[in-house]
């Protein structure tokens, strides 16, 4: 393996965030902007979950018959997984509200161009 899984995820997360910011700033179509924003959120989530990675670790479920020391030494860090779940839910609801507003604006203005709708 040339680069390990954690480093790969961190790099992917960074790329997602950069692409997302680029899309959110420079693309004019509102839906494309929102897709870019979803990229930023996903990048942050991927980053967060990569923090819990442990090389060669096991799932943090204490199965019957498992030695206590073995579990303590090999289980992955569970906190980021719990956090990222919450974060995904928040991201989804934000996205839903945003798309809802875009629908209303499209009905009112008949356009999806940010430069027309969200200009001065």
């Amino acid at each position: 393996m040339i680069i390990d899984t954690q480093l790969a995820s961190l790099l992917t997360a960074g790329a997602l965030i950069v692409i997302g910011i680029f899309a959110a700033v420079f693309l004019d179509n509102l839906i494309k902007k929102v897709i870019g924003l979803a990229f930023i959120g996903d990048g942050a989530n991927l980053f967060l979950i990569a923090m819990g990675y442990k090389p060669g670790g096991i799932v943090y479920i204490y199965l019957p018959g498992m030695a206590r020391d073995f579990f303590a030494q090999n289980a992955a860090y569970p906190l980021p997984f719990a956090l990222v779940l919450t974060s995904i839910v928040i991201g989804a609801s934000t996205m839903a509200v945003m798309l809802g507003i875009i629908m209303v604006l499209y009905k009112k203005r008949g356009s999806l161009k940010a430069s027309e709708i969200l200009g001065e």
Partner: peptide, 13 residues
């Protein structure tokens, strides 16, 4: 510093 989204995002970034 007007209200257009492009300006705002530009300054934010």
């Amino acid at each position: 510093l007007n209200d257009s989204l492009f300006n705002m995002t530009f300054y934010v970034v």
